[in-house]
Design a protein around this nucleic acid. Structure first.
Lengths: 377, 377
DNA sequence: TGTACTTCGTTAGGAAGTTAACTAACGAAG
DNA sequence: CTTCGTTAGTTAACTTCCTAACGAAGTACA
């Protein structure tokens, strides 16, 4: 047993690259980490000794000598991601290469049980590196201890309830759910391969996740992308009211408008966005008009984002925003008002928030391995 | 004479730090660059041999042995910054530590002469590293050659006219003037010491310079911060028109509203923002009301920015935005609508654009020294 | 079944930078 | 005027990583 669990700098770099790749040969690690073959050899030896990496097979593809393949070892550990949604709680445990190790679901009330279930399903002996909890609230650094707290009161109680189930001593990071979903689109969704984009979520509320250079933009109060505070209505002779835009463009307002515009000839009035979009897809006139109107509203919101950020790509998500039927209308309004900007629909859907939270947790977990090892004892 | 003009990595790092500090002792360089004393010693020797640094004195302040002070050497060269404003052209030549070497001014038509005058005033023998031209237009990377071009036609002809006066072979970088002014606030203005803020310029046009982590955010089309494209008017039953917001909140509209609201009892109607703000400062009721209204409009604009970016600080500038009289009204409206955000007035004023362009040129010039030296011959 | 070719991994030597210790220079106190 | 504390700069040993060359282990082909 090594008395000094510190990693050399090159070993840390190799570990980070190995975690990102999942598994790789030594030459691959060398080119990905920008290190030479001998350095990678010694780094791999160091990681194997620390059980952070293991020899998982040999690559026997092409010509030439076959290379040894390495993967993450048992000591690399796991991370936990929790999505505290308004109705459902999703929990995910992942290894540091992102592979799913445990999964659990429950209602909001069953959050504690779901967390316990996922924790029990994690492999024994694997250290839990970090926990990320996604909440539907602005999150800001806590004054004490470097932790995070919901900045407003909305998500506070739920978070407190869940935190009793979390093992002590493991760093917990709170993150806004829209930011998490944006990260999911970045890593395995519609924004794959991009460096900068905006993820516009339209549901009961509206929110924007901003990714610039692969990093989430959080803002001075953790409130970047809180579009509910855009001035609205905005005109020469009207006073904007706080949060008025969310009431107007959110899911509730869409259904309210549907109820108001509905005529007997249209059949039963839809009571969910799903029904409304289905009727529009069938060619019903009233439903189609409502969808077109909604698309224009979303397009204006997107135009406001593009006017400030010019992100080049906007991914639409959320319970009323993710329908591809909206795309033509949104693109038309955005094109009329603002800069050339791609608009696509979310591909990760409802799981986006947990998936993104898990991505964030993995990134932080890798840091703890490569940084904690540097602490002077 | 050294046959190989390449710098070692440590010498490059030390040079960059020295350029930022202007002058420094070896221990200072070591701590600023994060290098050890012996490494700095050899780096300084290398820079001195290349005439990129010179021994400029000794620091004889405190106790202990007095340290040698080094500054930039004659071979470090100079950069040129040009502000092609709508009326005036400002030109500035700087050393790589930011010290002013030459200055020239002219009307828009005299741009070529002003550039020639500044170039002539630069010390002979000092290589010109780079040129930054600030234009009132969106700038985007040119297809060929890695240069920059105005993206729309507005500033194109002026830039072409000036470019004949620029010495060939020197890299030219085009930048938006609002972005330049934001950099000036960052380095020597109201945002000194900040990492993230927004510079909101209200004049004939409106624009926002976004600085995140000390870097200007340009956007996919180079159009980040082009607030003229914010949807306006924006309400349930109005169609937003492109650029309508600029017409409404810009300087022209302020004077137009003044003319409309003016009554005979108020005396002669002001025909400049200066006059209007002066009358308001004297306590004239009509002028005061117009200023208050303008402050509320600017506050709404700031709220739109804060809703998307949550920058923590907004610096107000421009011909009608820089008046500190606006601050209370802007702060009130922003506080009512959005997140806690500091609001202050610009401190660099009209010179901001050239100063910022010079800062940008210095940063790029330092890069050319430390990078060009790495090119394999 | 050799032989040639290709790729993997290790060994050896060198470049660059760090820590630690030492010498040099300067101010203040006795 | 000497001595002491403090800070600057240099020298030496050690660490880390790279390049270059070589041996090892595969595949392709006569």
């Amino acid at each position: 047993m090594a008395e000094t669990p510190r990693l050399t700098e090159s070993a840390s770099a190799v570990f980070a690259v190995l975690a990102q790749a999942g598994s790789a040969t030594r030459p691959q690690l060398a080119s990905l980490a920008g290190l030479s073959k001998p350095t990678v050899s010694s780094a791999v030896a160091e990681l194997e000794a620390a059980r952070l990496a293991t020899h998982s097979g040999t690559a026997s593809g092409g010509t030439g000598r076959s290379a040894a393949v390495y993967g993450l070892g048992p000591a690399s550990g796991a991370v936990l991601a929790v999505d505290l949604g308004p109705a459902r709680t999703l929990v995910r445990g992942c290894a540091l290469d992102g592979t799913l190790l445990a999964e659990a679901t429950g209602t909001r009330e069953e959050a504690v049980e779901a967390v316990r279930e996922a924790l029990d399903a994690l492999p024994v002996g694997a250290p839990l590196r970090t926990i990320v909890v996604a909440v539907g609230d602005v999150t800001a650094p806590d004054g004490a201890g470097g932790g995070m707290r919901p900045a407003t009161a909305k998500a506070g109680p739920v978070f407190d309830a869940v935190s009793v189930a979390l093992p002590p001593g493991v760093p917990v990071h709170l993150e806004n759910n829209v930011n998490c979903a944006a990260l999911a689109e970045l890593h395995e969704g519609a924004a794959l391969g991009r460096r900068t984009f905006g993820y516009l979520r339209i549901g009961v509320g509206i929110g924007l996740g901003i990714v610039i250079g692969g990093q989430v933009l959080r803002g001075a109060n953790g409130a970047a992308g809180e579009l509910a505070r855009l001035p609205y209505p905005w005109d020469d002779d009207r006073e904007p009211r706080q949060e008025a835009l969310e009431e107007y463009v959110g899911a509730h307002s869409l259904l309210r408008r549907a109820a108001a515009a509905w005529r007997d000839a249209d059949g039963p009035c839809p009571d969910s966005a799903d029904q409304l979009f289905a009727l529009a897809a069938e060619g019903r006139e009233t439903a189609g008009a409502l969808v077109a109107r909604h698309a224009a509203d979303v397009g204006r919101l997107a135009a406001a984002v593009a006017a400030v950020l010019d992100p080049g790509l906007i991914v639409l998500g959320g319970s009323t925003g993710a329908y591809p039927q909206l795309l033509p209308g949104v693109r038309a309004e955005l094109g009329r008002l603002s800069w050339p900007t791609e608009v696509v629909s979310s591909t990760v859907g409802d799981r986006g928030t947990v998936v993104g939270a898990a991505r964030l947790a993995v990134a932080r977990g890798v840091q703890t391995v490569t940084e904690a090892a540097w602490v002077k004892d």
